[in-house]
Computed example of a mutant assay.
Amino acid sequence: MNPTGQPAVYILASQRHGTLYIGVTSNLIQRSWVHREEIIEGFSQRYGTHLLVYFELHATMQAAITREKQIKKWHRAWKVRLIEAENPNWDDLWPAITGESSGG
C-alpha cells in the first residue's frame, strides 16, 4: 500500500466515538500529518480530530470526491459502522500508512 499520490477518502476522529472529520486528498500521509500537527487552523484544531480511523484509496480524484460527498450525507450511525467494519477498535492508522511505530 502506498497512499502517497493516490486519491483517498479519509475519516479522522477525536477519540473512539468522538467527533468525526471526513476529507479527500491526493496525499493521505501529508494530509494526515497536517491535521495531526494542526498546521492549518480549522476543524481539526478546534475539535481535536487527529486520529486516522478509516480511509479508502481510489483510482481517480473524481471517484474519491464522489465517495466523500456520499459519506458526508450519511447518518452518523452509518459512518460509525463503516469505521468499525474495518477498524473495530478505532485504532489510529497513522502507523500503518507511514510505517512508524504506534508509540511515535
Rank of each mutant, 00 (worst) to 15 (best):
D91H: 07
H35W: 07
Q70S: 10
R67I: 01
Y47G: 13
T66C: 06
S102Q: 13
D92K: 04
H35I: 04
Q45M: 12
G23V: 04
W33F: 08
R36T: 07
E37Y: 02
A59K: 12
T25M: 03
H35Y: 07
W33N: 14
Y54N: 15
E38P: 01
N2C: 05
Y54S: 15
D91S: 08
T66K: 09
S14V: 07
L51A: 12
F43H: 14
F55H: 15
N27W: 02
L82P: 05
A13V: 11
G18T: 10
F43P: 08
V24A: 05
T60V: 07
E100Y: 13
R46W: 05
W90V: 14
V24T: 06
M1N: 08
G48L: 09
R76D: 07
E86T: 10
K73S: 11
S26G: 10
T25I: 04
T25E: 05
I83K: 03
E38C: 08
P95H: 07
G48D: 06
N27G: 06
Q45R: 13
G18A: 11
K69I: 03
W74M: 13
T66N: 14
N27C: 06
T98C: 04
A63R: 00
I65S: 01
L51Q: 15
L93C: 10
Q6S: 15
L28Q: 03
D92L: 07
R76G: 09
L82F: 03
K73M: 04
L28T: 02
Q15V: 08
A63S: 12
L82C: 09
I71N: 01
Q6H: 09
W74K: 08
T19P: 02
Q45P: 05
R46Q: 14
A63L: 03
V34A: 03
Q70N: 11
N2Q: 13
Q62I: 00
I40F: 07
Q15T: 12
H17D: 15
D91G: 05
D91I: 03
W74P: 02
T4Q: 14
Q6L: 10
A59T: 11
E84G: 06
R81M: 10
K79C: 12
M1K: 09
G48A: 13
K69V: 02
W78I: 09
V9K: 00
G5M: 04
V9R: 00
P3F: 04
V53T: 15
I11Q: 05
L20D: 09
K72M: 12
H17F: 14
G48N: 11
W94F: 15
D91L: 08
I71W: 02
I39F: 04
Q62G: 02
